[in-house]
Computed example of a mutant assay.
Amino acid sequence: MLLLIPGPVQTRPEVRAAMAEDIAPWDLDFQRRYAWIRERVRDIAGGVAGVHATLPLQGAGHFVVEAAIRTFVPAGGRILIPHNGTYADRMIRLAREAGREPVVLDLPDTRGVRAEEITAALRADPSISHVGVVYSETGSGILNDPATVGAAARALGRRTIVDAVSAFGVLPFDLSAQPECDAVLFTSNKCLEGLPGIGFAVCPMERVRERAGLAGSWSFDLGDVLRTAERAGWGSFRFTPPVQALHAFGVALDFYEAEGGRKARLARYTENMRVLREGAIGLGLRPYLDEAHQGPIILTLHQPDSPGFGLQRFVDALKRRGVLISNFYNTPTPSIRIGCIGAVTPDDMRFAVSAMAGALDELGVGRRAA
């Protein structure tokens, strides 16, 4: 089965096989490997040894996003969140339920936020301490540029939290060039092509130390994660870690390096997107985004206006042909979501386009109807 969703992604057999090993988290060999994972991830983020630290947390991306908000935004404090997709919705809720006050900057979900919009919102409200931005919005597929957002925030003395869950390891990011950034956040199961189970924050260590104990949650206190590492060693974990997922993530990082790192992986995903987008247009399907605003992570298409089309019926027809896509959408109007990331190639995308053609034929959706 070809898995084309924006996460969890399709993985290599070697990565999945690494999950089959029983591991003791205190074993010295595992601790050395885990410490290497933290260093490698810090380097991918553009972090500097002794200045920035990788702070892992068990669970989904939402867990580490909440942890960053709780750690860095003071209780009752205000965080500006550009709202142009589903994951901004979720950041807003996480902030609100953590006792922080989200200030929502409403935007269309068809383009990224602009520097002047950030600047205007921050100037209008000096009480805002942070901007929380979603780098890659997999609701529609648009990108918000964290460098642009960061420069606007830095100019006004504010800080940022970057949700890079579906961007990290592929889209450009350099923590050392963005001193206003308190945390860049991501997970093991997206563009680095590992398996689910771990969220990561890469943060300036001094900022984390300043905020230790202020999260209002022991589990979600990134300062406590850092304290444990500094006290017990960088191969240590506070609570029982997902050791098999971490081991598999290390294997995935080995493949990432062997492929050529960020630039090589971005090139593959970009070609995946090109093949899929052009093929979908050739089938009469209409992309949700203009090409100028299309990121390489996920393609969103308008659902065909045809009485024979139903999203679940289309998903089922594709699955019978060996392709699995999302059976839900996150846009205001009905859409189709197809991921371009994971251990997949442009030839896989050509196979997917062929399967889409067969599925549309089965549902009686012709090019004109689409």
Rank of each mutant, 00 (worst) to 15 (best):
R100N: 04
T86V: 15
V104A: 11
A95Q: 06
P74R: 14
Y87D: 13
E101Y: 12
G76D: 07
D89P: 03
G85F: 06
Y87I: 11
R93N: 14
G99F: 09
R93I: 14
L94M: 12
G99A: 12
N84Q: 09
P82Q: 01
A88P: 04
T86K: 15
A88H: 05
L80V: 00
R100I: 02
T86A: 15
V73R: 05
G77P: 04
I92L: 10
P102T: 09
L80D: 03
G77R: 10
L94K: 02
I92S: 07
E97H: 15
F72C: 06
Y87A: 11
E101F: 11
G77S: 12
V73K: 05
A98T: 01
G77Y: 07
I81R: 00
G85M: 06
R96T: 12
A75N: 14
T86D: 14
N84T: 06
L94Y: 08
P74K: 14
V103H: 02
I79M: 08
L94D: 02
N84A: 10
R93D: 14
H83Q: 12
G77C: 10
Y87T: 13
T86I: 15
R100W: 06
R90Y: 14
H83S: 06
F72T: 03
G99R: 02
N84G: 07
F72R: 04
R93P: 02
V104R: 13
D89I: 07
V103C: 08
F72W: 07
G77W: 03
R96N: 13
R90M: 11
L94N: 04
V73Q: 05
I92C: 10
F72G: 00
R100T: 03
R93V: 15
R100Y: 09
E101M: 13
V104I: 15
A98E: 01
V103D: 01
R78Q: 11
